[in-house]
Every structure is written in structure tokens, then in C-alpha cells.
Write a protein that binds this DNA or RNA. Structure first.
Length: 490
RNA sequence: GGCCCGUUGGUCAAGCGGUUAAGACAUCACCCUUUCACGGUGGUAACAUGGGUUCGAUUCCCGUACGGGUCACCA
């Protein structure tokens, strides 16, 4: 059996969005599952839409998620060049050949003539299909005019009879009536091929065995097959994949900042988590496993389990999955990722590793970190009502008692270096005061953080904040609660 | 509009003629617990619709509705 070869063929027109990346992933998985080759080809035949730096984004993205290509512009290979604009002469050659074979013809029509026909069609309410007068011109005459320097395009010639069918691996047999197939331009007047044409030539030249692409090509695939047939080339295996949607109506698009891979990284998502999540968009494994490494995906991936309907990109599930990745790491790895966010949010001299420790179980995306630890630098102003917690069964009076006892005990503590010491000390207080743990610890945590929710409890946070700051904040708490008493008595 | 494709809970989805129609996210409740979170347990929630075929349809066929795609010298 022939070695499987797939290609990712993006056009460098901006950043990589999630749908794009998922196509690349599927292409990679299909190839690697069969020990095949994954090739990167840059489709830059549209000079107008090309965006500076877009190619680098493609390289960076593939590298970040570990989709290493076996051949491509940067790594070379036996089928280069891998950038379409560098393959220009070849397309013209094949276009001429296709004309000779009867699969295409030269066209000298200008934009206006086509628009003219379109208007007529619209006015009588008929579907527009360009009827090219140049089709009837002899090749000799056409080539003569080209010699004269006339600008021209090469247009596909399609016999409007019969049907063309093909077997798609995902959608099954697709048939269309040749009658409705447009005779589209293959070679533009600027000498560049259109996507339609360049794609076919390159896929064939590069020995691509499995063509994987979005299902928007489903209805035009028969046209491509007609060209393959005219050349007498073997038609590749087609795998059309469903779209990744933003919502029920809209596909993910490059506009509006829709989930680009780069955006997600900036928001603190991990490349592996993103890749893992998108693998599950439009494809389902046989088992209930959801967390996969790339290698595991390679093993279990199968074309048969690609779905036919579009999948809405659900940021909530990605967020959950990202949290799973974060929690599965060892502390050091997590800390390495968290550190930039911590140093940005915390100026006080505290042990950042300890902060990471309490954060790891409570962080889904890294960008959540700053707001979680904002109380460390500065005690927020807070309302005394915070001291009242129904479930903890606290009152102002209890809170005040607890804080006073905590102050006394903690100020006597010499060695603050061990969290365990603080733990034992504070947990000795409730029984001494005949209170429940929560009744003592809730007020302490409230006093030293000023927030209703914090990562970590009183003990961990006291340890992180240090003796001086902890006592200072408890003092503030005591004063606030004493004011409360005064107010009540007045 | 013509043609192509799709339609299982809010979302991702399993299912491939007979099931109490999985599982995950989200959501709700409870448990754990020094808050939150993690973790655990449980709950709410779905086969677009009408006809066939069949002993039996979520599953097969046809129609309808809804959604998407395509009809570019864009990919």
C-alpha cells in the first residue's frame, strides 16, 4: 500500500483560527496514524490578501502544538518548492496541457461581459452560470491572440451532460449534475493559478494521497475530479470535515477576534489543552477518555469517527480541560507557567512557590491568577459584614474574640517559616475558646484578605503573608470590629 | 433561487432496527471542608417534523421545516 501523505495548505492571510488548526490536526493524525507524512504547503496565490508575518504564525502555531511537518518550506523535502508562488511556471505549463487535453480553454472575456450575463440571468430570475463564448474559439486562434499580447485566463471546460460522483470518506457518495458545474477560472490573468487549480496540480505533484479540507469544498470537488480525469491522474481519497462554529449560525472566522490560537494562548490556555479540545470537535473517540496526548491521538484516531455536522466551539469546556491540564502538572511545572502572572500581580516579598501551590487546584486559565491574588499586595477595604458567615456561625462578637486570640497567639510565635507550626497554633484556639474551627478561622481569613473568596485558607495565607503583615491586618480587623461594637451601643 | 450537506439535552457527543437513549462540559442539590476551589455523590435536561418500510424505528426510505455550504480572476 502506498504511504499515506497529507498536507496542510493554509493561505498566509492572517492568524490561525481554531478551525484551521483543527484541520491541520486531523491531517496530521490521519497521516501519522498510518505512519505517513504530513506536509506543509503555503498557498499564496492570492497576492492581494497576503498578510505580512502570517507564514511565521503558521510555523509557530504548528510548532507550539507539536504538529511537526515532514516536508515544508522551512524543512525542505523532495517535492518542493512548498510555496505556491515559487511554482508558478509549472501551473502555466499544466494549464496549457489541460487545454490540449480538452479540459480547459483560453478565455478573453473581461469582467464586464461576465457581469452582463449575470445581470440578465438575475433579471429573469435564473441561476447564473457563465456561458463563455471563448469556449468555441479554436485553440489556434486563441494562441494567436495570446501571442499578440492579449490578456487571458484559462477556464475549465465542462461537458454539461452526465453526472460526476465521488466517494467521500466522511460524507459518503456525493453526486452532482455536470450541468450545474461552473467553468471556473484556473489560471488568472496575472498568471497565478486559482486555488482550484494550484491545489490539484500540487496535490498530485506532491503525492498527496488523502485530501482533507473543510466541507465547503464538497460541492466543488466534482469539478476537481474532472481535471484529475482529464490529466489521467489518480483521484485522491477525500476527507471533508465539518466546520467549527462560533454559534449555531456562524463559522469561526478571522474577523471579530474569533478564537484564534494566539488569542487563546494570550488568555492563558495551554497549547496542548487547546489541541486536545479541538480534537474532540467533529471527532469522537471510541472510549470515554477525553484527555489525550498528541501521541495517544495518533494511535486512536480514525477517519470513520469524524462527524458530519458542525460543532460549536465551547470555551467553557476548553476552560475546564485547561484546568485539568494545569492540575495534572507537578508543582514546579505549574509554577513555571504561573510565575510571569504572579510577578506581575505581586510586588510584596512573598514566597511565590507557596502561592502557586494554593493556586494550582483553583486555576483553570492562567490569566485568572492576578485577580485571585490581588489581596496579597494590599488589603482591600472591606465591609464588616464579611465577618458574618451563616454557615460558619460567626457573629461580630465571635469574630472579635477570635481575632484577639489569634493576634495574641501569633504575635508570640517566633518561627514563622513553617506552615505547620501556624496550623497547629491556630487550630489550638477553637477548643480553648470553645468555638468551632470555622468560627475562628473564618474571621482570621477575612481579616487578612478582606475578600469573601480566596485561594487558600487562613493558615496558608497567614504563612504566605508573613508575621508582620498578618498581625497588621488582624489589628485592622480588630479595630474595625470594635467600631462595630461602639456603633451598636450607641 | 438552483445544487450539495447537515439536524440526539444549553454545548461537545455515543448510538449504526429491539437500550431504563451512554459519557463529558455547563447547571442545580448534597457530601468533604478554615472561605473558594479541587474531589465525591445525585438531580434537571435530548432523538426537528409528517409520512412510509418493518413485528418493531433515534437508527432505513421519501417529503416538510430549520440551519450551513456553494454558485469569484478568495481560499
Amino acid at each position: 500500500m502506498k504511504k499515506v501523505r497529507t498536507r496542510f495548505a493554509p493561505s498566509p492571510t492572517g492568524y490561525m483560527h481554531i478551525g484551521n488548526l483543527r484541520t491541520a490536526l486531523f491531517e496530521y493524525l490521519i497521516a501519522k496514524h498510518e505512519n505517513g507524512d504530513f506536509i506543509l504547503r503555503i498557498e499564496d496565490t492570492d497576492q492581494e490578501r497576503e498578510v505580512e508575518g502570517a507564514v511565521d504564525i503558521i510555523y509557530d502555531t504548528l510548532a507550539a502544538v507539536g504538529l511537526h511537518h515532514d516536508e515544508g518550506p522551512d524543512v525542505g523535502g523532495d517535492f518542493g518548492p512548498y510555496i505556491q508562488s515559487q511554482r508558478l511556471p509549472m501551473y502555466k505549463e499544466y494549464a496549457d496541457k489541460l487545454v490540449d487535453l480538452g479540459g480547459a480553454h483560453y478565455c478573453f472575456c473581461c469582467e464586464e461581459e461576465i457581469q452582463e450575463q449575470r445581470k440578465v440571468a438575475e433579471s429573469i430570475g435564473k441561476a447564473f452560470k457563465f456561458d463563455d463564448p471563448c469556449k468555441h474559439m479554436s485553440i489556434e486562434e486563441a494562441r494567436e491572440r495570446i501571442q499578440q499580447g492579449e490578456t487571458y485566463t484559462v477556464r475549465q471546460t465542462i461537458q454539461p451532460t452526465g453526472i460526476t460522483a465521488f466517494e467521500d470518506q466522511v460524507y459518503g457518495r456525493i453526486e452532482v449534475d455536470n450541468n450545474i458545474l461552473d467553468e471556473s477560472v484556473l489560471l488568472k490573468s496575472d498568471g497565478f493559478p486559482t486555488y482550484n487549480f494550484a491545489n490539484i496540480i500540487d496535490d498530485h505533484q506532491m503525492g498527496i494521497t488523502h485530501v482533507v479540507r473543510g466541507n465547503e469544498y464538497l460541492s466543488s470537488t466534482p469539478k476537481y475530479n474532472l481535471i484529475y480525469e482529464a490529466f489521467g491522474w489518480e483521484i485522491p481519497t477525500y476527507i471533508h470535515v465539518p466546520p467549527v462554529m462560533k454559534d449555531e449560525q456562524h463559522k469561526l472566522s478571522k474577523r471579530n477576534g474569533d478564537a484564534s490560537f494566539q488569542d487563546l494562548l494570550q488568555k492563558g490556555y495551554l497549547p496542548q489543552a487547546v489541541l486536545n479540545y479541538i480534537a474532540l470537535l467533529g471527532w469522537a473517540p471510541e472510549t470515554e477518555q477525553e484527555i489525550y496526548t498528541l501521541d495517544e491521538l495518533v494511535k486512536v484516531f480514525s477517519i470513520q469517527r469524524i462527524s458530519r455536522s458542525g460543532a460549536i466551539f465551547d470555551i467553557d469546556k476548553l476552560t475546564w480541560m485547561n484546568g485539568m491540564y494545569l492540575r495534572a502538572m507537578d508543582l514546579e511545572s505549574f509554577h513555571a507557567l504561573a510565575k510571569p502572572y504572579l510577578t506581575q500581580a505581586i510586588k510584596r516579598d512573598v514566597d511565590l512557590l507557596s502561592v502557586s501551590k494554593i493556586l494550582q487546584q483553583r486555576t483553570d486559565i492562567l490569566s485568572q491568577i492576578p485577580e485571585q491574588v490581588d489581596f496579597i499586595d494590599e488589603l482591600p477595604t472591606y465591609d464588616n459584614g464579611l465577618y458574618i458567615h451563616k454557615k460558619m456561625k460567626t457573629t461580630y462578637e465571635i469574630a472579635l474574640t477570635a481575632l484577639k486570640a489569634a493576634y495574641e497567639a501569633l504575635s508570640a510565635l517566633e518561627d514563622w517559616s513553617k506552615e505547620e507550626t501556624i496550623h497547629d497554633l491556630l487550630l489550638s484556639l477553637p477548643s480553648a475558646l470553645e468555638l468551632k474551627n470555622g468560627q475562628v478561622l473564618w474571621p482570621i481569613r477575612t481579616a487578612i484578605t478582606g475578600k469573601p473568596f480566596t485561594p487558600g485558607g487562613a493558615i496558608e495565607l497567614a504563612h504566605i503573608l508573613g508575621k508582620e503583615e498578618t498581625l497588621k491586618r488582624i489589628t485592622v480587623g480588630i479595630e474595625k470590629l470594635q467600631m462595630e461594637e461602639v456603633n451598636k451601643n450607641n
